[in-house]
Design a protein around this nucleic acid. Sequence first.
DNA 1: AAAATAGTAGTAATCGTTTTCTATTGCGGA
DNA 2: TCCGCAATAGAAAACGATTACTACTATTTT
Lengths: 365, 365
Amino acid sequence: MRRTTLQDIATYVGTSTATVSRVLGESSYPVRAALKEQIRAAAEQLDYLPNQAGRMLKTRRSREIGVIVPTITNPFYARLLLGIELEARRHGYHVLFCDSFRDGITERAYIRSLIEKQVDGLVISSINEDPRSLEKASRQGLQIVAIDQNIDSRLIHRVGFDFFRAGLMAADYLASLGHRNIVLATTPLTRRSRREQLEGFRLGLSRHQIDWTDGRVFIADNEQEQESLIYEFSAGRTLAEQVLNTSPRPEAIVAVNDLVAMSLMQHLTAAGLKIPADLSVIGFDNLDFSEMVTPALTTIEQPALEMGRTACQVLLSQISDTQLNPSDDIEVNHPVFTARKSAAIALTLEPRLVVRQSTARAVKK
Amino acid sequence: MRRTTLQDIATYVGTSTATVSRVLGESSYPVRAALKEQIRAAAEQLDYLPNQAGRMLKTRRSREIGVIVPTITNPFYARLLLGIELEARRHGYHVLFCDSFRDGITERAYIRSLIEKQVDGLVISSINEDPRSLEKASRQGLQIVAIDQNIDSRLIHRVGFDFFRAGLMAADYLASLGHRNIVLATTPLTRRSRREQLEGFRLGLSRHQIDWTDGRVFIADNEQEQESLIYEFSAGRTLAEQVLNTSPRPEAIVAVNDLVAMSLMQHLTAAGLKIPADLSVIGFDNLDFSEMVTPALTTIEQPALEMGRTACQVLLSQISDTQLNPSDDIEVNHPVFTARKSAAIALTLEPRLVVRQSTARAVKK
DNA sequence: AAAATAGTAGTAATCGTTTTCTATTGCGGA
DNA sequence: TCCGCAATAGAAAACGATTACTACTATTTT
């Protein structure tokens, strides 16, 4: 049951571990062709698989990156993870996956644990506003890319999304359809991205001379509820109630993301409202599911897969940078990308409006 | 930038690595209380985090388990992964996540790579029918739990689902609503689970004296298409076309899973059919999304979260079994569970019918 | 009073790699 | 003929943790 080691092969062939390592590790160090063959054959014969723990200890690289997301049951993050994984695999890296379950303590424990595992880098959608725990990790030599959020720190790289512009676009679009009584329905504004979205939303309204009042933002405060594993679905229900209890009833709703939008529509429809005739709804993300619901959801796309890919590219480019390994350069496919030595990289992806059936022109009164 | 090691702490305090290791590792070996304190303080001071590579090499355990699924963008697998992770975390284990992208080669490469990483165990929803690559891994000392499928092997543990019974229930339910022209719409029958589902479906029909013909099974053969990352959505479109081109048109459809069902409904509705008035549809899985679509989907629940949890419990129980570590016994919450030494464990979860709005009584003619 | 034992700490071996030395050839050029 | 260098290979020293030994006290036990 003991696994085959380099030593086993060396003994089997009658050579030393040094030579075996050189052959199997494709080193440029010269070894007699015949011996090479013998060693390869023996490795095959004995089902040799290198023990990464040993290699890792010596080389100080694990070829693993950690990924921390708030909830994998949100398809947005599932897709993000896929993008990261696809790119990681392309470069021979593995993904250590962690679901923080939207809990700061769990998140910090994971960061710590990932450092112990010697991951070469970390992609995180952090739920902590405070960058200190990340900066500490960064000072331990860990390369970090924050994703889907904006963190202020010279140590942390960022692949973000223009939430402000997204909020602006949503408000602008609804206003341009003639709606005036437009509201924002959101989960608590604990993440900066949500606050930016709100600011964009406000600017959008003001551009159309729509007055701001605090009544324009509905917040679901059932962050803790676990009745559905997708907590946005509970939030959507709560928000639907709030909307129904408000008079005059809003004509158009900007939902903080597609999941909330879907749930909102479900409950509003159940209460007898016709969407988009009675009420327009717009979401953010453009999940695969958003065109499966009825009516198909109008939304602002946030390209999860591309975001994951890009984040991973940035991370790997920085890792090979740090480790001075010029052999395999990682190319980052982003126009704005410029690798500056020892400065945090920040990329921003642009929102795109996807019009479907959940929004309609305001009816003239 | 160099990380703190045990040696650094030892030097700092003026003691040996042995003592430091004993203190920080909470060993039962006695160490003077004062010294203990000093060491702990120094560890804190120097931001010490143990290097798992070193530990792993010596202890031969990584406290990592690998998870391989076919596509994380399918919420069923996302949820399964969550269940596994939740349970793993509870026991101090980490998850190395791998998406095989429904590709056998990739899957095998991952298995190999996971062994190299010294994972203590593996949970896999394998897309390879042939258990040999898994058995080989098992012979390398890896504990393996196959999930969401049935694999024939004395070496591989299983946490499955009664697909046969599920297929039976679906057929039975539709027939009991008075439908006679019932069909099965599925992706290719490359997985055993699908074939079992089909067999259950056949038996269900025969119990209601409904004749079998090959025309009762529709297969979408666009497994390769990547137009949507959720390939079931393309499959659903293809199947919808097949259904629309068939005459007489089926009265009721059993879809191979909820994703296919959703897509089917979307395209059939787009073609002008009313569901469930013109046609009943039933799915499998009971995704969170299945009640968000219109009409809300009737389906047979396959409890993904519980399945993930159970699989992880089984795996961990076997790991601590192998490693003769009786300290932390893992409890498997399943009635049928019996830990038999050196025999594969097999658990089966039972299907449950969830009735919603996509199915209705047949209209009398 | 001698011997066994509990408490405490350090030395050194070990896990499986990689890599730096050190050594031994044989060969071409001076 | 001698020197330097390329080709080839093994010995041994890392990497950072754990742990089996060894060793020295200070008690207990007999």
